[in-house]
Computed example of a mutant assay.
Amino acid sequence: MEVHEAITEVVEAAMVRIRRRQTLGALAGKSPVPVAVFRVLDAVAVSDAATVGSLAPALGVDQPRASRLVAQAVSSGLLERVADQLDGRRAVLRLTREGTNLVDAARDGRRCAMATAMADWTDHERTEFARLLNRFVDALDHPATAGRDTNGR
């Protein structure tokens, strides 16, 4: 096995471990809502004008599943549907105060867990990790530009 392939396997295994932790809700803290609903809240929190249609691909689920998850979040008082200011026929999703508090608490918990995991790293190591992780995720999101460094090379 070549070195590149072995390194890729190590990265893949680490990503699987991260995904398992997230699936178990370990990074979301002690959330009173199911992990799938929490992911909806997380996705709405980072969107300017989330709709059920825009959430489905962001969550990696089909439209009916996204609709059910949104309905669950709405009925739990965590999300609300509001008329789109640009197109009144369309409803956008917005976190309620309770939903915002839940997302904020989870973010604080995740950041604390990450800070703890990197507590004995140097500033340079944390900075380099953040740079490389962002580059890695960008390459996953945009495979056509993979391999270029941050200077476009």
Rank of each mutant, 00 (worst) to 15 (best):
L59R: 05
A66C: 11
L86A: 15
A66T: 13
V82D: 01
Q72A: 14
R89V: 15
A83L: 14
R81E: 08
V74M: 03
L79R: 03
G77L: 05
P57E: 13
G60Q: 04
G88M: 14
S67I: 08
P57N: 06
G88I: 14
Q72G: 07
V70N: 01
L59I: 06
A66H: 03
D87T: 15
L86I: 10
R90M: 06
V70I: 11
L79S: 03
L69R: 04
A73M: 11
R65F: 07
G60I: 05
A83I: 10
D62K: 05
A56H: 10
R89K: 14
A58M: 03
P64G: 05
P64C: 06
D62T: 10
Q72N: 10
S76Q: 08
R68D: 08
E80Y: 07
D84R: 10
P64E: 01
V70G: 13
R65S: 14
A71Q: 09
Q85L: 09
V61I: 10
L59M: 12
Q85K: 09
V74K: 05
L59V: 07
E80N: 00
S75I: 04
S67C: 09
R65H: 13
G77Q: 01
G88R: 04
A71D: 04
V82G: 08
R65I: 12
Q85I: 09
D62Q: 02
A56R: 07
A73P: 00
R89D: 09
P57R: 03
L69D: 05
Q85H: 10
D62P: 04
A66F: 14
L55D: 04
R89N: 15
R90T: 15
D62V: 12
S67P: 08
G60P: 00
R65D: 03
D84Y: 09
R81D: 07
A56L: 07
R68A: 15
A58N: 02
R90G: 06
Q63H: 15
L78P: 02
A73I: 06
R81H: 10
D84V: 13
R68V: 12
R68W: 12
D62A: 07
E80I: 10
A58E: 00
L79E: 02
L55C: 12
D62F: 09
E80C: 05
A83P: 00
A73T: 03
L86K: 15
P57H: 11
V70H: 12
G60E: 02
L79I: 08
A66I: 08
A71G: 14
V61N: 02
A71T: 12
A56N: 09
E80P: 01
A73V: 01
R81Q: 06
S67Q: 07
G60W: 07
S76Y: 10
S75L: 09
